[in-house]
Design a protein around this nucleic acid. Sequence first.
DNA 1: CCCCGATTTAACAACTTGGTTAAACTATTT
DNA 2: AAATAGTTTAACCAAGTTGTTAAATCGGGG
Lengths: 187, 187
Amino acid sequence: MQQIADAADINKSMLHYYFRSKSDLYEAVFGHAVERFMASFDHDALRDADSFAELLRRFIDGYVAFCQAHTDIMQLIVSENLRGGPLLGEHLQRLEKTGEKAPPHIFRSAIESAIETGEIRPVDPDQTLLTIIATCIFPFVARPTAQIMLSPTASDWDAFLQARKEHIFDVVYHGLKHPAVSSPPPA
Amino acid sequence: MQQIADAADINKSMLHYYFRSKSDLYEAVFGHAVERFMASFDHDALRDADSFAELLRRFIDGYVAFCQAHTDIMQLIVSENLRGGPLLGEHLQRLEKTGEKAPPHIFRSAIESAIETGEIRPVDPDQTLLTIIATCIFPFVARPTAQIMLSPTASDWDAFLQARKEHIFDVVYHGLKHPAVSSPPPA
DNA sequence: CCCCGATTTAACAACTTGGTTAAACTATTT
DNA sequence: AAATAGTTTAACCAAGTTGTTAAATCGGGG
């Protein structure tokens, strides 16, 4: 608490004044992180995409960029997940009530639409969503290992991420789209 | 240390007797976890696969199964990664010296071969490896969130993982293989 | 001007932590 | 039987933890 107060350039007593206990403080911080994290699913560029391919590309770009810019937030959320995440329940359900639709649900329904129009193969939307998120987030979660085992050194990390966006889109979209046809498959 | 000693059903003094300090103990445990984790890349079933598709399928099955059976090991490794992983360097390099080839490298060269034979498209092996690992591990890293936002409740978690193996193979292999041709592409 | 909330300061209490120490006891080996 | 390594017990210490308390200080609005 002392260190937190110092870093925030306020007084330790003030911390207890506004946040009764350390766990209260953590919960507040975590709630803030969850909101920002969820909001990252839902930026304007996603709304005016004329194809699923375009939507997917923008989603990947935005998502990786968010993790890149706010590594701390992402780490906090992953960390809470690793712990078993007792707080996740409350906060996620709170967001589902507040916003009409939780951000990831938007993308999921986009997947379902794309299946109906025949742009992509019939896949499980949940699994697909998880796959996309996983490929975007994981480099940040396992960054030290990735940097040791794969080629990228710390210096060209940004370049690696740039290439990653393209790779994810490339592999995932090829993995989802209908093979060699652009129209819906035979019923 | 007291709790650890109790859980191990030994005496607290014994812990300091064998492991001088808590960080020594942690390092030993972590090293053990790394070895087991790396070994999971390298099981016999991988060696006699007659196609990249079969290799990929077996790798995914084995990897998800490992995470399922040894969640604690995986959590420890991910956790250390999140912390910035100062220990990862030593242990990973130690393994690279010991074993002739680090396990993930085997799979990477398999990707390269499959590219040469034309079974799959020319993709970045590093990125591809990271993608496959990410899709396998991430459900465990983000399990609480996944269970809240996606359909699976705790009871059918195993069924979800079973379906996940198939989904990963389905999407990733479709994403990698050459579209509609089984022979190498025109030079 | 005075009051009141926000803020600071500093000391303090209760408790947990990692780690040490010394003495006694046990089992095995020589 | 004697020596030795492993093991237990229990008390203890220094440092760090969260959290509390009370008094002093500051700043603005009625």
